[in-house]
């Protein structure tokens, strides 16, 4: 059984939610509510590289905001 997140020949998007959590997303499946496309359509590896560059701390944004206030 193939997985829609592991297909090197398909196009992908990078989605972001309110907590700045990022999700890889297959371009051919509807984007779920509460998520915004910030990159793509692009090949899978390019999307992953983009995420590595642009999402540096994987913790939720609301948490990081309160930690930074200390």
């Amino acid at each position: 059984m193939s997985n829609p997140f592991e297909d090197d020949n398909s196009g992908y998007l990078v989605l972001v939610n309110d907590e700045n959590q990022h999700s890889l997303w297959p371009v051919w499946i509807d984007v779920p509510a509460g998520w915004t496309t910030v990159h793509g359509e692009a090949p899978r590896q390019e999307c992953l590289d983009w995420i590595e560059t642009n999402w540096t701390d994987i913790r939720p944004a609301s948490l990081l905001a309160t930690i930074d206030q200390r």
Binding site: Q21, L24, W25, I58
Partner: peptide, 10 residues
Amino acid sequence: PGLTAGRFIA
């Protein structure tokens, strides 16, 4: 982050 975004998905 890339690994996270590929496993924890919308």
